[in-house]
Design a protein around this nucleic acid. Structure first.
Lengths: 193, 193
DNA sequence: TCGTTTGTTGATTGACCAGTCAATTAAAAT
DNA sequence: ATTTTAATTGACTGGTCAATCAACAAACGA
């Protein structure tokens, strides 16, 4: 049933299936067949559209990263004060789709992928740099070493992610993670003496 | 040339080779053959002594964890004040063999392994729990919410590990990570107002 | 109407790998 | 001296999987 314009939605379905399957299995050891099945197509089609497994993984990473970027940009836009901008970045990190168990698990695996795949490493570095830059910017009026604050907060976010991926409690308890971050931010900006 | 008492040193060599190879490749996708070669034996021998690849991986995890435990215990023993005990735990986390690139990379991969292997997950949870408990204990006289401090510090340690595994700079720059942790601990214990 | 493009798959290939087994060596025990 | 036991491996097996290919189906354009 070849209607034209399938490409876009097939690619989309495959990318989503990739994230879903990696997250579900908790490992990069998912076959093209599994992913393709989850997307409702044959493995041959996945190869047809993406060329290779690596390309598909990269596409999935880009999807997550741009999703995060979108949410971050939106949250930043709504924030009025510097402190609110910090909170917005925290909210974006732990809010929405980003903190769903599957996505967190996939995320962790992409960190691993970045150790082998040069392109994955590059993608991840761009994301990290952008997050630190955003945090630094927001923190500049609030403390005397905004870069240190930004780096610490970024590491804290990653650490909470990784810990969340392990203790696979059903409900994605974002509020605890957010509270931890906010507590640190208050401390570092000298809010609560 | 079968001399007796080979088992212990073969097992040791295989466990070390496992950490080394996983760290070098940055992935759990290492074959028994590669590991065995690195240890100077045949893959059949690795199976003979460990039974399966999973068992070998678990043994490698246990090796890293007990190494960390040993260093932590030693550092704690030398510390006199509560604040020094916190620093000792930080030192143990980023000092010695624990922060060598290969070990960090292997560590990250064990986090991934824990998503599939129940036993690996259990091991990791024990380590995490023990770290948090130690940190909480040390922090109890220093602040009013020692558990929150401990959890935050633990997450921060993990986050710095993961970030270190990515930006694969040759020299293992532990000092920066330690400085970040110490800065947070000073803040959280109300040292520098 | 008929070629062309786009979408789609089943079958196949080629490589790789965990785990098994039978066989070999030599030390230790009797 | 001979039996037992530990150490060790090469060769093999069964299975898995990424990637390819040839073929088919339906829409579109001429």
């Amino acid at each position: 049933m070849p209607r034209i314009g399938m490409m876009a939605q097939r690619k989309d379905a495959l990318v989503n299936a990739t994230i879903h399957e990696i997250g579900r299995k908790g490992s990069l050891d998912v076959t093209m067949g599994q992913i393709a099945s989850a997307a409702g197509v044959s493995s041959a089609l996945a190869h047809h559209y993406f060329g290779s497994k690596d390309e598909l993984f990269l596409a999935a990473m880009r999807a997550i990263l741009s999703e995060f970027g979108r949410e971050a940009r939106q949250a930043l836009g709504e924030a009025q004060t510097p402190r609110a901008r910090l909170s917005a970045l925290v909210q974006a990190s732990f809010g929405g789709r980003n903190f769903q168990p599957e996505v967190v698990a996939a995320w962790l695996n992409f960190y691993v992928l970045a150790q082998t795949q040069v392109q994955a490493a590059r993608l991840l570095r761009v994301y990290q740099q952008r997050l630190v830059t955003n945090l630094t910017h927001a923190a500049r009026p609030l403390c005397d070493d905004p870069v240190a604050l930004a780096r610490t907060a970024a590491a804290l976010i990653d650490g909470l992610y990784i810990r969340h991926a392990l203790t696979e409690a059903g409900p994605p308890d974002a509020s605890a993670a957010i509270a931890t971050l906010e507590r640190y931010l208050d401390l570092a900006t000298g809010q609560r003496p």
